[in-house]
Every structure is written in structure tokens, then in C-alpha cells.
Amino acid sequence: MSTPSSDPGSTPPTQGQQAAIIIPHYNDVVRLRTCLAALVPQIAALTQGDGPGPVDLVVIDNGSTQDLDPIRADFPQARFLSEPQKGAAPARNTGVRESTAPCLFFIDADCVPDPDWLKTALDLSGWDGIIGGRVDVFDETPPPRSGAEAFETVFAFPQEQYVTRKNFSVTANLLTTRKVFEDTGPFDGTVVEDSDWCQRAVARGWPIAYHPELGVGHPTRNDWSALRRKWKRTTAENYFAGGTDLVSRLRWALRAGAVLASAPLHIPRVLRHPALAAGERGPCIGVLIRLRVLRAGWMLRQAVFGERPLNT
């Protein structure tokens, strides 16, 4: 088992805080800085006098090679921990274990919370269950959008559908309580950790709800290689989540066919999307078809040959 450690200058959690904000991080200092710059004023606005703030702001670094000293110096309000085991799931588990607040707020290092995100989260907190908030996407590059950016604009983070139809929230914007987390158990990094954890919690009887007033922004992946890496990882996680016995692998092969067939069915969605300019629709359709073909190929290969577990 990995042993987490406090980074130099980190302080222990303050007793009596209402919530812990858990942020896993790996080699994304620029975006982490933007995330913390959005959160710290919200914490300050809720802090009374010279007393402690209402939340424990915890960043868990996953072995970054980038220098974290400047961001530690600029954001003394945050506690920085280290988790040597690779993966956001072990990092999040460490953040929970090394904090004491009864409410747990999960957000990703590359997300930008709305100006009222923390106040909204605190207003919603104390409910033993799971809350998934809205996740909007934004571009970090000037227009026109690349095919990857256009694809993410149309298809990334349908959070309301995830919560209301599939009983999970992405961890980019998820609220829960320590009681629910301890009953459900830790995140599992060998599968799609957010859907697996939420569905385990729901199976144990904990309710889940969608609250669009709780909003964060997430950058679109701006090129094909970034989009490919995301879906390569997600395809592997979903393969293990479905089981690796013979029957499960046969089902996985059939699902590969469904993924391939879904590409033309989703073209009208691209053509109708109001956020895309006319010149962005063609590249988006190209990425849609290319990605579905690639995913189907990965899935068929997994069904036939298997795949090595993640984070091993």
C-alpha cells in the first residue's frame, strides 16, 4: 500500500471545518493555479475575522515532475499532500483519509469553479447522498475550434444524463459526505472510478441528485492526441468494469459493434449543435467517426486478447 506524505510546509487539517475540497493533481500547474485562484477568494469571503475558513482545501500531488514550490508559496491557504501511487483515484482516497471534515467536495485541478460554487456547495451540503453539479466546457485556444475541441463541445460531460439515467456524477464536480464515503469504500482506480464509486453508493441505498446551479468549467481537449489518450484510458477502465470472463468478453465484443454503429447516428447531433460554427461541423464529424472506429478496434482486441489491469 502506498504511503501518502505531507509536502514541505503543509499543515494538518483544522478541526471543526465543514467541508474538505479534494483536488488531485499531476503535472498541470498552470490549470491548478487557475483552479486555486478561483477557489481561494470564495473561501476568504466565507471566513469570519481571523478564524479558520469553513473548508479544508487539499491538493494531492501524484508525483509531478513540475516544480510546485511557486504555487505552494502563492496559495498558503491550501494543504499540499503527496500520493506516490499513480492515478487520480489513489490521490482522492488520500485526500479523504488525510482530512477530517464531514462533507467532501470533489473537483479536478483543470476545472474552474463558478464564482458561487463554494457557497452553493455549502448550502447543499449536509445531505447524506451524492450531488452532481453542472460541467460546462470551454476552449483554451482562439476560434475556430479544432475537430477535437468541437467534438468535446458536443459530447463531453452530459452530467445531467449521467446522474439521472446512469446514477453517477463525474468527480470534476461531485459532493458527498464522509459518512457515505466510509460506507461505500474508496475509489477504485482499475475501473472508471467515478461511475463505479457512485453506482456502488447508490446500490447501498444512498440517493443521488443533479443540481445545475452548482457549476464548474472544464477545458476541451484541443487536439487529437489528448482526446485519444482520454478514450484509450476510459476504454480500458470500462473493459475491466464489465468483467473479464468469457461471457463478459463476448458482450464487450458486441458492444464494440454498437460503438461503431453509433457514429452515423450521432452526426445529426453535431449538425444541430448551436455552439458550433459552420466550419467546425465537418472536422467534428471526422473526429466522431475516427474515434468510434478506433474505440471499436480497441474493444475487439480487448475481447479477444484481454488487457493488463490499470495502475499495476
Results as ranks from 00 to 15, higher is better:
S248G: 08
A253N: 04
T220Y: 01
N238L: 14
I267N: 06
D223Y: 14
T234E: 10
E237D: 08
P264Y: 11
N222P: 14
L260P: 01
S248M: 03
G257I: 03
N222L: 12
V259C: 12
K232E: 15
T234W: 08
V247S: 07
A261T: 02
W252F: 12
A241R: 13
D245K: 00
T244Y: 00
R251C: 08
A256L: 01
V259E: 15
T244I: 07
V270G: 02
T234A: 09
L250V: 12
R229A: 15
K230D: 13
D223K: 13
S248D: 06
R221Y: 09
V270N: 05
R255N: 11
P264W: 08
V247K: 06
R229F: 07
G257L: 09
A236V: 12
W231Q: 10
R228L: 14
R249I: 11
V247T: 05
A261R: 09
F240W: 15
A261C: 03
A258I: 05
S248Y: 01
K232V: 13
L271M: 13
Y239H: 06
V270F: 01
T244N: 05
N238S: 13
N222E: 12
K232W: 12
L265A: 11
A241L: 14
T244K: 03
A258P: 02
R229M: 11
S262L: 00
N222I: 05
A241G: 12
A256H: 04
E237L: 03
L265V: 10
W224D: 01
R249L: 03
R228C: 12
P219V: 13
L254R: 12
G243P: 05
P268A: 10
L250A: 12
V247E: 06
L260A: 09
E237M: 09
P264C: 04
F240D: 06
L271K: 04
